[in-house]
Nucleic acid binder design. Structure first.
Length: 677
DNA sequence: CTACCTCGAGCTCA
DNA sequence: CTCGAGGTAG
């Protein structure tokens, strides 16, 4: 039984260590020598070992890294983690400001903005319950991420317990986990010394560190966390301004960015941007832009969101980084639809934090526009997650032997003729399913997770199967024999059996998956689902007329045409027949009855300003009732919803004698069909 | 588009 | 030990 003196000593040690941690990591003011800190930590470890009953999960000793995990658990963000709209120049910023003032309608007085650098790291969410760190998660797709609590616990600037008081019972803090440049140098120096693989940039090093199953490895990486906002908050109140919320977070022991500043008006935002851009290289961490947020939370609430980003914030990105390199070769790739894409093979060059060796040249127009030749020195641009681009040619450095790039006259894979559709920039191989490149792409797509989900059928295997002549179309997959597979390189008994089992499993599928898997042009996951729901069975879909196809929401003339082409092609239908023959099957869908989709087949147009619903919501709700919402009025339009400020569309509707209703009538109609206002 | 982690399997060599 | 596949991140 520990004596009260021991309990008191443990408490006192923890308090001191927490406080020093706070001073050091959150306030950036070291207060005690490292030796003193270490001495106290060792003493605490010793006492906790002696009295395990006194061990707490939020003790400063509990950061070293727990035993390895089996796998990452999925977590759901109750408040989704959104992304930010981007601005690339001062004009974008002025547009942003204009949108804010128009929407708020409070006049032209300068708005107050909270500014801070956008750290280049990994976005995470920390959940504190009763002030104790309960869970840390990655952003993931915004609604679900991965549980990385075990790794985040090892980061010294993340408090395991909030300091002080007054924090809400449940507080979700959001921020960026990143590796300061010095830390990056340090772990790379260590890796070099031990002959291990080095990281290419701090962001990837941070991401890699957080993806460790073994937190003991994470603990050796000097990661930091910087907070920039909150998510879920309950059982307590926060201040009414963003900047004040951040200040409060800092009091509670969370690190916030030292450069954070509140300014008045959009011009001051530009000054802040210019000032920080000038200091960018001198900062101890990488940043890829500046974030500006409307500081007043009440205004934020009035502004709301557009699909996946708040209207009240914007990230102004720094100009993309550019480097020069040499164009070694141009390869012409053939895609799933036969589209021929020229891809530049470049002398590898380090730009924007990664080594770029490939860049798409899009099409022949682009090659012409650039006037680029093989062997040319070119400028390559890359910004953050943006796909690298060939920007221009350095003509002064053109070698005398630079050769023009010849666009192939026939398909580089199957030699079939090429065709360029009217008003399209892309050139396509007309070989269709006889083209090995298109066969491979079709099979890859068919096997992919969102389609038939055939595990173990990766790119390399598809390559082998087609090259060996074992499979020429997706139906051929189901005729593969075990012996044929075993004859392939690097494919043993286990892999073969696994693949065969996966193929067998994939035979039981669903109609939307199957439609999507066929790879019909312009028919993605969403369209496939809409088609399946609308027709309910393959037969109904395959037999549908152009007009019937057009009645499906999201299906326009282009998609309808591609669908008809597929159903009119004997070879395509033959593949489908073969698939069904080998046992690919799915349950037919319950047809969405007239009661479920009262507006099915109707075409609506929304124009003018909708005061209560907003155009986006109105569109979504109409679509949910089965209507197709079009952008312009035509003779086929069923009904027009017109709000104040409606212009030519309203005029056209009246001209054509189409029914016009106002927002009130729309709300009544939605209410009649059980839609929430 | 690039980079990173993890896993299982296959290959290689002792 | 190396490779391929499958997943993540920005």
């Amino acid at each position: 039984m520990p004596s009260p003196a021991v309990v008191q000593e443990i408490d006192s040690l923890r308090e001191r260590l927490d406080s020093w941690n706070y001073q050091y990591y959150v306030l950036d003011q070291p207060t005690v020598p490292d030796a003193e800190y270490d001495r106290c930590l060792r003493r605490l470890v010793e006492l906790e070992r002696e009295y395990p009953a006194l061990l707490r999960p939020d003790s400063p000793t509990q950061r070293v890294g727990a035993a390895p995990l089996e796998r990452f658990r999925q977590v759901t963000h109750e408040v989704p983690m959104l992304s930010l709209d981007n601005a690339f120049n001062e004009q974008d910023m002025l547009d942003f400001n204009r949108r804010l003032q128009d929407r708020l309608g409070d006049g032209e007085a300068p708005l107050e903005f909270a500014c801070e650098p956008k750290l280049d790291g990994i976005a995470v969410s920390l959940l504190y319950r009763g002030g104790v760190l309960e869970r840390a998660a990655t952003r993931g797709d915004g609604s679900t991420g991965e549980d990385i609590t075990h790794n985040v616990r090892t980061i010294p600037s993340v408090p395991l317990r909030l300091r002080g008081e007054g924090y809400p019972q449940v507080l979700e803090v959001r921020g960026e986990i990143y590796l300061p440049r010095a830390g990056f140098e340090q772990i790379n120096a260590r890796a070099r010394a031990q002959g291990e693989k080095m990281f290419v940039n701090p962001r990837n090093a941070a991401a890699g560190s957080l993806r460790q199953l073994d937190a003991r490895i994470t603990a050796t990486r000097p990661l930091e966390m910087c907070c920039y906002g909150v998510g879920l908050v309950s059982g307590g109140d926060l201040p009414a301004q963003h900047s004040a919320v951040l200040a409060r977070l800092q009091q509670w022991g969370l690190r916030i960015n030292a450069e954070s500043l509140v300014v008045q008006g959009i011009e001051a935002c530009d000054e802040y941007y210019q000032r920080l851009a000038a200091r960018r290289d001198a900062l101890p961490y990488d940043i890829d832009g500046i974030v500006f947020k409307v500081n007043d939370l009440a205004l934020q609430q009035r502004l709301g969101f557009v699909s996946r980003a708040p209207r009240w914030a914007i990230a102004r990105k720094f100009p993309a980084q550019e480097e020069m390199t040499r164009l070694l070769d141009v390869e012409f790739q053939v895609g799933r639809t036969g589209a021929i894409t020229p891809v530049a093979r470049l002398e590898p060059v380090f730009v924007g934090g990664v080594t770029v060796s490939n860049a798409t040249l899009h099409n022949s127009d682009e090659i012409e526009r650039l006037g680029v030749r093989l062997g040319d020195v070119v400028v390559v641009r890359r910004a953050g997650d943006v796909i690298p681009q060939v920007v221009s040619v350095v003509l002064e450095r053109r070698p005398p032997d630079a050769r023009p790039i010849v666009f192939p006259a026939s398909c580089p894979v199957c030699a079939s003729p090429l065709e360029r559709a009217e008003d399209e920039a892309v050139v396509r191989c007309m070989g269709g399913l006889v083209c090995a490149a298109q066969q491979k792409a079709a099979i890859r797509h068919f096997a992919s997770r969102r389609a038939m989900d055939i595990e173990g059928l990766g790119d390399k295997l598809v390559e082998q199967l087609v090259d060996e002549g074992l499979v020429a179309n997706v139906a051929g997959l189901y005729h593969l024999q075990r012996e044929q597979l075993l004859a392939l390189e690097r494919l043993g008994e286990k892999s073969a059996d696994k693949l065969l089992a996966a193929l067998e499993r994939s035979k039981h599928t669903t109609l939307p998956r199957f439609i999507f898997a066929l790879g019909i042009r312009e028919v993605g996951e969403a369209t496939a689902l809409a088609l399946a729901r609308h027709f309910g069975s393959w037969e109904a879909l395959a037999g549908a007329s152009e007009e019937q196809l057009l009645a499906v929401s999201d299906v326009g003339p282009v998609v309808a045409d591609h669908l008809r082409q597929f159903f009119d092609s004997p070879s395509s239908l033959a593949v489908v027949a073969q698939l069904r023959e080998v046992g690919v099957s799915w349950p037919d869908l319950e047809l969405a009855g007239a009661a479920d989709l009262p507006l099915a087949g109707q075409i609506w147009v929304v124009t003018g300003k909708l005061e209560q619903l907003g155009r986006d919501d109105a569109t979504a709700q109409l679509q949910a009732l089965g209507a197709r919402v079009a952008g312009s009025v035509s003779a086929r339009t069923t009904c027009v919803v017109a709000g104040p400020g409606a212009g030519s569309k309203l005029g056209k509707a009246v001209e054509l004698g189409i029914e016009v209703i106002d927002e009130g009538a729309l709300l009544a109609l939605l209410a009649r069909h059980g839609m929430a206002p």
